[in-house]
């Protein structure tokens, strides 16, 4: 089965492109201290707002910090926020979805109404609200994004579980008298993996976008930690004289989020049995 998936995945050039870009980004993030030409926090007021040149490949910002070095460190922030936030929402979404679909009844009704209620609010509004009242910092950003983005996944997992519950192998497991928890983790969970993987991959992209938006509004990662969104904010005041401060961080966000989306969409194509016959 895995071999078939792998074959199909190899044919999907867009997904491969996404995966390769993500691997490169991860690589750069790990190597950031070694490949950065300068210390990302080092201010050099003699070199304020230098345009891109051989000594500063992407120029310098208003405090004379090297943009390229800050961009490398920014990858770490974006990937961390994306992965941690998605990890939180996947755990919540999967557990609630499985419980809701498998146990049904009142549990199901309550969980699904909660999902409906959450989906009525613009997610960004809820996030903005909670972060503004808490202290805006990277930990709160990750946690709040994670705790507000599970409802969609819960619906998916529940739908999948509902159809699995009627299948012979689950009914056989019940007849054999296996405990509910065993059925839960050993028989149900592995079979709902594909929608989870797809929505998690797409979720990383969305979380990175949300973080950059929050940082842009000054409610995300706080200076001096280099985050792309926050680099954009401080750069936008100099947009007339220093275009590179606004262009490069935005491009970096775009490429990163696009990679995750292309990979997620490719995985959906590969893992969805209906599309491939």
């Amino acid at each position: 089965m895995l071999k078939i998936y792998f074959q199909r995945f190899k044919q999907n050039k867009l997904a491969i492109t996404g995966l390769v870009l993500i691997l490169i980004l991860a690589f750069l993030a790990v190597l950031a201290p070694f490949i950065s030409p300068f210390d990302p926090a080092e201010q050099n007021l003699a070199y304020r707002l230098e345009s891109p040149s051989f000594s500063f490949l992407l120029g310098t910002d208003d405090l004379g910090r090297d943009v390229l070095s800050r961009m490398f460190y920014g990858i770490r922030i974006s990937l961390t926020v994306g992965l941690v936030a998605v990890f939180i929402s996947v755990i919540i979404g999967t557990v609630l979805g499985l419980v809701s679909g498998y146990f049904g009844g009142w549990t199901d009704t309550i969980i699904m109404r909660l999902v409906d209620i959450m989906l009525c609010f613009p997610t960004f509004f809820l996030i903005l609200l909670v972060i503004a009242f808490l202290e805006p910092n990277i930990y709160n950003v990750m946690i709040v994004i994670g705790f507000t983005s599970w409802p969609g996944l819960t619906r998916l997992v529940r739908a999948e579980t509902l159809s699995l519950r009627e299948r012979e192998f689950i009914q056989a497991a019940e007849l054999l008298g296996l405990s509910r928890w065993r059925i839960f983790f050993v028989h149900l969970l592995p079979n709902v993996f594909s929608p989870i993987i797809v929505s998690a991959t797409l979720g990383v992209g969305i979380a990175i976008l949300t973080e950059s938006g929050l940082s842009f509004l000054g409610l995300g990662v706080q200076p001096p930690t280099p985050s792309w969104g926050q680099m954009l904010t401080s750069g936008k005041d100099y947009i007339h004289i220093a275009w590179w401060l606004s262009l490069f961080p935005g491009l970096a966000i775009l490429i990163t989020v696009l990679s995750f989306n292309l990979l997620g969409e490719g995985l959906r194509d590969v893992l969805d049995p209906r599309i491939n016959e």
């Binding site: 050039k13 867009l14 992209g205 976008l209 950059s212 938006g213 842009f216 969104g229 954009l232 936008k236 947009i239 007339h240 275009w243 606004s246 262009l247 961080p249 935005g250 966000i253 775009l254 989020v257 696009l258 989306n261 292309l262 969409e265």
Partner: peptide, 29 residues
């Protein structure tokens, strides 16, 4: 199909505020 996939995902992936800034700079200023 492929071109449109990339196009719509570009739109989905682009930070709105960044695109807004760039377009304001281009068309407005």
């Amino acid at each position: 199909d492929k071109g449109m996939t990339v196009l719509v995902f570009l739109g989905f992936s682009v930070p709105t505020f960044w695109l807004a800034l760039l377009l304001m700079l281009l068309f407005g200023l």
